[in-house]
Design a protein around this nucleic acid. Structure first.
Lengths: 232, 232
DNA sequence: TTATTAATTGTCGTTTTGACAATTAATAAT
DNA sequence: ATTATTAATTGTCAAAACGACAATTAATAA
């Protein structure tokens, strides 16, 4: 029987940075840690990678267990593996960021875990290197969202241009001209205008749009260019 | 003493996809595996993550040991963690891609390991999921290179526009108009024209350029836009 | 009927893009 | 010495995209 003799073995975990949008601000979902050390401190949603699952599987399992949601947008970020990042025992953690529709979550709230949404800019200190993870996730979200149409994942199926506009401003922490934004986002051809209007918070009302799923799936890898005629 | 009872522990490794450019084609550096199973089969450069090092440290150590090179461009790609990807024992591997100047390597060849450059499009079958890793690395290289000036890492300090041009064509597997390419690449302001010319393979000779290090370091995160006035 | 508010559509000069051609600097051939 | 050859370099131009900026519209409240 062959074996990799004497190589050290480690725990492997996943941690998820869960982003949501309440219509005004970008938020993240945190939980009170349920085990020692640092029990009852705020932390990211995480868990150990089981014997029969990949890290991706584990991240999905953790999200399902803690939010009740399946099939959420989940993206591997990077691995966190400093030898002493966990004070108890060496643990490497794969960081993921997730985008969810905050309202879906509220509908399926799971009471087994003490979870709470926090404003991204007003959140408690987290355990271990989770603060760094959040910072990295935010940066990656910004990067990705500038090139690919992923922010829709944080909105309901029906959404308005002004909602999307605010979300883009939140994620990028900047003001964007409404007129140019509207032109650019519609020119992607990814939006389908609905007959219905959203009348909350506006006299005129804003038309609802939905994603053109076909084009969205086909174009999710498309992005702007340095290469002429670039099609990825 | 607190401990994470009964959680399974795994081996953690790193694997590096090392890219080089010989002036004509994109190549990758492979080694003959030195341990069972699959001994003497071609594989990526890799190794286990030691007790006192991070995965990044491990990748740098492996590269140093096998190529003699330090400070090479190294980027974490993703984690490979299917439960049965290694037939002997569960091992998760962090994939990295590295860009090196192929001539630097040849100068410092390390004979302890049987390593060899292969054309990216004409390489042997690799062990485990290493074929998938190479495919992923190639995709990521293409993606990154379209947005950020990283391909310089595969060229000598002094290089010509035609060299760079061929490299871009190789990486993207497409033809690029020389005139537009030249304009675009010089308009980045990252290149400094030297007085000297490269006369090999051309009667007229092509001017050498070098990177403007200051601007390169300052702009390495800059990229094209979906956001107006985007500056990352 | 008018004031108010937010959504929506529109204008325009500038810059970037990408398709395409002409010129230049060197060497090799006659 | 002149000319042919080859690859590098510089140039043209119309179309599209960009970004700064303003006018109009659809609804409700006064």
């Amino acid at each position: 029987m062959i074996e990799y003799s004497k190589q050290p073995h480690y725990l492997v975990a996943v941690d998820c940075i869960v982003f949501g949008f309440d219509g005004e601000h970008l938020k993240i979902l945190l939980v009170k840690r349920g085990l020692e050390p640092e029990i009852n401190k705020w932390s990211l949603m995480g868990g150990f990678v089981g014997a029969d699952e990949s890290p991706d599987d584990a991240a999905n399992r953790v999200l399902k267990k803690m939010t009740g949601l399946e099939g959420v947008y989940l993206e591997q970020m990077q691995i966190y593996g400093e030898p002493r990042r966990d004070p108890i025992e060496r643990t490497l953690s794969v960081g993921y960021f997730a985008l969810i529709d905050i309202h879906k979550y509220e509908a399926q709230l799971n009471d087994d875990y003490e979870a709470e949404w926090f404003l991204i800019n007003d959140r408690p200190k987290l355990i271990f290197d989770h603060n760094q993870m959040v910072a990295d996730a935010r940066k990656k979200l910004r990067y990705k969202a500038a090139l690919h149409p992923i922010l829709f994942e944080m909105l309901p199926k029906k959404f308005t241009i002004p909602q999307l506009h605010i979300l883009f401003e939140e994620v990028n922490d900047t003001k964007i001209d409404t007129r140019n934004f509207s032109r650019k986002i519609t020119s992607t051809g990814l939006l389908i205008k609905l007959a219905e209007k959203d009348r909350t918070g506006s006299k005129k009302g804003a038309f609802y749009f939905k994603l053109d799923k076909k084009k969205y799936n086909a174009n999710s890898q498309a992005f702007l260019n340095l290469m002429p005629n670039l099609k990825v």
